[in-house]
Simulated scan of single mutants.
Amino acid sequence: MTSRLNPEDQRRVDEYLKAPQHQVERKPFRPLLLLGVVVAVTIGLGLLSRLLSGLVL
């Protein structure tokens, strides 16, 4: 992929990205964990809404 930046700007971008604060190691993305959290929160909020409706009615 070719850059549309001129060489000087591209050099500055490369230096910025190579700085230590931009080299953070990240854990791999785990979509099943995200799905589990979303399902758990949905079930929890559903149960909370049923509990509150039972107290109000």
Rank of each mutant, 00 (worst) to 15 (best):
Y16L: 15
L55M: 13
S49Y: 11
L17N: 10
E8I: 12
V41D: 02
L48C: 04
L45R: 00
V41I: 14
P20R: 04
E25R: 08
L5K: 04
H22K: 12
P31W: 07
V24M: 08
G46K: 00
E25S: 11
R26V: 14
F29D: 02
D14I: 06
I43Q: 05
L5G: 01
T2W: 11
V56H: 08
Q23H: 07
L35G: 10
G54I: 00
V13D: 03
N6F: 09
L17T: 02
E8H: 10
T42D: 02
R50T: 12
G36C: 04
L35Y: 11
P7D: 05
L32Q: 15
Y16Q: 14
E15R: 07
R26I: 12
L47Y: 05
H22S: 09
T2H: 12
M1C: 07
A40W: 06
V37S: 03
V41M: 08
T2N: 15
R4P: 05
G36M: 04
T42C: 11
K27M: 08
G44N: 03
Q10P: 00
P28C: 02
L34W: 10
T2Y: 11
G36F: 02
R11W: 06
F29I: 05
Q23D: 09
G44P: 01
R30L: 12
Y16I: 12
R12C: 01
S53H: 09
L51S: 14
